[in-house]
Design a protein around this nucleic acid. Structure first.
Lengths: 331, 331
DNA sequence: CCCCTCGCCAAAACCGGTTTCGTAAACAAT
DNA sequence: ATTGTTTACGAAACCGGTTTTGGCGAGGGG
């Protein structure tokens, strides 16, 4: 910067003002400085800037895993929004390793981010607390339901989604509708509640045997579906807690020689990009994951800018997307 | 740090040495300082450290897109390796937008990374050149074949993969084997060359009508398969340029009422985690994508540490994974 | 007993920007 | 012509670490 200043015949502060578009520089001077900057291809030294300005110019996105389409969608939304704001995205994965909590948290804090966005990491509560203690603004995507009050978070209307999916299957004529649950997050509990409520309102007696717990991976959908379909009086429809589980359900059906939707209807949750590519295309509850990431980012940027947020908790609407995997039962 | 120094009754440089594990500090002093650090939960200020030490403590990973399982796998490999080295990963997506090249490149350069890993961005050559001009070390994953010499890159044995896939289909008895190509990258050309060579060696006459160009997305697989299967004398097997295309092929087969592998065999390329979950599970050529990301990262770290690399170009072995989507032709 | 070396540590300089503050010049008002 | 006000800009301080330099005391050799 000193070099640019010398070439333009001004001082460092003036160059700084020009680069930051600050007032207090005469038009002629500004233009001259800008020309020199362009000629020399000068770019600021980020670290120096971060140090003296007190802003890191980057936000840390903490996800549980990266090789999962759900998180990928969040990443996409966050990335686009940060890009627009001229900030860099530092991506950290926790990989469920509670042991390494200390190490990576130190990395996050030390790297000096302007804020952090958490997407369902384990040890959620501890992370949020520690980040706050270090004065790092935090926003959450898809709250696990264990975060301290006042932390802004973006979710989806999971109850409504669970309800809509179940209602859809009921309206097709299904009576024996199974549900594969997910990990004990807030969102899962709400989806299940929606499922139960829909059954209840339709006067269909609940059957505990039709509710299978599981994780948000394909394997649990597979296991659950196998168990469900081999039992006496099997379900005619399976509502999977998320799309990955639904893929596992597809797999189980395929192995058992059953067809979707002729023998068993399947509905997922999330509407990952993959859902419409499956064969048959998956009926699912759309969760605007990318938008959730984008919105959480915007909220975080708001906090960083010290604006007052209207609301600390936002739930975006889910919507039922009917494709090929759901149809009236055969009989 | 000044505060820690005061509390421990030493000076800043001593604290610095303790934190960096440098020699020149008496055991007793070191222990006392460490205790104070632990008590106060002190973490260094990353930006200040970056500025004075000249290292940013982060590496920039530049991918074409993030919502694509291939890139996700690379991200995973890079993330793990960087994590182990105590570095942060800044993720940037180019989204194919040549127009915005300048803007994001400025962000990358200005953020001050210790190095960059590029995965198939457009404007590849320009990016590499510019990064080098700024003195930023670069490593490539899956070279597009347009990079300047001397840039370390990690790829896979694409020719062997294409050959193996085709040979597999030939050995099952297929004669009319179609191939869906990809974008004009080096890797694509090699896969096609492997395909052609295998046909040639088996004495099967090549048919230009059986080679369809496309991009590495499901849609092109879909389009290509539809066109191929509706033509006279359709293929009995389709070798897709990557797994995403294979999903599109599945889709086309489903819509046409054809079954895999009974009517048409399908082989993919990449072996994304998804491949084994599809129904039927996809036979494919495994490309160790995660390892490629990890290795590229290691090479980059080597350059940063100013070690001399043994080799500037490494190709990891592909391997054929036979699952359910390939079988002898029906007749 | 003196000199020299070496280990340990503090003072100061430095990284490359941003911010504060002061001043000179230009202009308006009296 | 003098004073007040605004504008444009530069000098210096500052961000929080790391690196360099140099001084002091202890231990060892002559």
């Amino acid at each position: 910067m000193a070099e640019i200043a010398a070439l333009a015949g001004v001082s460092k502060p003036t160059v700084s003002k020009v680069m930051n578009g600050q007032p207090g520089v005469a038009a002629g001077t500004r233009e001259r400085v800008e020309r020199v900057i362009a000629e020399r291809g000068y770019v600021r030294h980020g670290a120096a800037r971060a140090l003296s300005a007190g802003r890191a110019g980057s936000v840390n996105l903490v996800v549980k895993e990266v090789d999962n389409a759900y998180f990928t969608e969040v990443i996409r939304g966050v990335e686009e929004t940060l890009e627009r704001a001229g900030l860099s995205m530092v991506l950290t994965a926790t990989h469920d390793e509670a042991r390494r909590h200390r190490r990576w948290m130190a990395r996050v804090v030390e790297h000096g981010t302007d804020g952090a966005i958490l997407v369902l990491p384990d040890e959620h509560f501890a992370h949020v607390e520690e980040l706050r203690r270090h004065g790092i603004p935090v926003a959450l995507v898809d709250d696990r339901g264990e975060s301290p009050p006042g932390v802004p978070s973006v979710g989806a209307t999971n109850f409504a989604g669970g309800f809509a999916a179940t209602e859809h299957l009921l309206s097709l004529g299904h009576q024996r509708i199974a549900m594969v649950g997910g990990p004990p997050f807030k969102s899962t509990r709400e989806r299940i509640a929606g499922y139960r409520t829909a059954l209840q309102e339709a006067g269909v007696p609940p059957d505990p045997l039709l509710e299978k717990p599981g994780g948000f991976v394909a394997e649990t959908g597979y296991e659950a579906a196998r168990a469900l379909l081999r039992a006496p009086d099997p379900p005619t429809a399976i509502f999977a807690g998320n799309d990955l589980q639904a893929i596992g359900v597809y797999r189980a059906l395929y192995e058992l020689g059953l067809h979707t939707p002729d023998d068993v209807s399947v509905v997922g949750f999330d509407d990952l990009p993959l859902a419409r590519l499956l064969t048959p295309a998956l009926s699912t509850v759309r969760q605007p994951v990318r938008e959730m990431g984008a919105l959480a980012t915007k909220m975080l940027l708001g906090i960083i800018a010290e604006e007052t947020l209207e609301s600390t908790r936002v739930e975006l609407a889910t919507s039922l997307i009917v494709r090929e995997s759901s149809a009236p039962p055969r009989y």
